[in-house]
């Protein structure tokens, strides 16, 4: 589980994240939404321990800034917004990078590490791609590979920064269904940021709306995705339609 209290991040003296508090229970999926520049990605990177921050972030009982890097990598895995694609690296070797925290300095990958890679390749239907170079894959295939590398870390907490922003709607759904399936199967805790509000609401248990670095609304998708909330913070006229798995948000021209 993730316990965030008064999380504050300053970058170059600008206040980007302003006293965010949020709990994510074990096995829960919480999605952070908000307009561009609201501080979503920055907050996520701070939770991952990748940025200096004020306040406290506790992962499964351990403050993230006091965890050893390797321990942190075993507790929490991140898929950043646009991961660097190392040219010419194979899918297998890329997923194996996820085992880095388990491989001792100067050591080699163990049979357990190789088995973990095989397992994730199987879970994400990537076995036929194992020997392919990353730069020959399509966007949807690549996103599954990024996810496989994160899962290979064996962490119970998964942070996803805009995991579907580069994908068409079919592949968006495919990736999110996969994450949801693995979450249920393995009891993963998921904290994500997303732009597509309807899709975000369909998968999240709870949502947090950030604006200007602050939490301005939090609760179930139905509570957060209201016409009033979105009009105020996104400065756009929207219509919210009840859907089977959550509210559907459509922007309308005013």
């Amino acid at each position: 589980m993730i316990k965030i209290e008064d999380l504050t991040v300053r970058l170059d003296n600008a206040l980007i994240v302003d006293r965010i508090s949020l709990d994510v229970a074990e096995g829960e999926w919480v999605t952070v939404i908000g307009p561009n520049g609201a501080g979503k990605s920055t907050a996520l990177r701070a939770v991952a321990g990748l940025l200096p921050f004020g306040g406290s972030v506790v992962l499964d009982g351990h403050p993230v800034d006091r965890l050893h890097r390797r321990e942190r990598a075993k507790t929490l895995a991140v898929v950043v917004q646009s991961p660097v694609v190392p040219p010419a690296m194979t899918v297998f070797d890329y997923v194996l990078l996820g085992r880095t925290p388990y491989i001792a300095p100067l050591g080699r990958e163990s049979a357990t590490d190789l088995a973990a890679v095989e397992e994730e390749l199987t879970a994400l239907d990537l076995v036929p791609f194992a020997g392919r170079r990353l730069d020959t894959l399509s966007g949807g295939e690549r996103q599954r590979v990024f996810l496989a590398r994160a899962l290979a870390q064996g962490a119970r907490i998964l942070l996803l920064d805009e995991p579907t922003s580069a994908l068409d709607i079919g592949h968006q759904q495919e990736v999110l269904e996969l994450v949801d399936h693995l979450r249920a199967q393995r009891g993963l805790t998921v904290l994500a940021t997303m732009h597509d509000l309807s899709t975000a609401g369909e998968y999240a248990d709870r949502m947090v709306l950030l604006s200007g670095g602050r939490v301005v609304a939090a609760g179930t998708p139905v509570e957060v995705l209201t016409e009033a909330n979105l009009a105020e913070h996104y400065r756009v006229k929207v219509r919210v339609i009840p859907g089977d798995h959550g509210p559907l948000v459509v922007a309308v021209r005013s």
């Binding site: 990748l50 990598a73 991140v78 996820g98």
Partner: peptide, 17 residues
């Protein structure tokens, strides 16, 4: 060096300095 090919931020999230 192999881990560094994914960039500093991700290398750091994988447990490296």
């Amino acid at each position: 060096l192999d881990v560094l090919t994914v960039g500093d931020e991700e290398a750091s999230s994988l447990g490296l300095h």
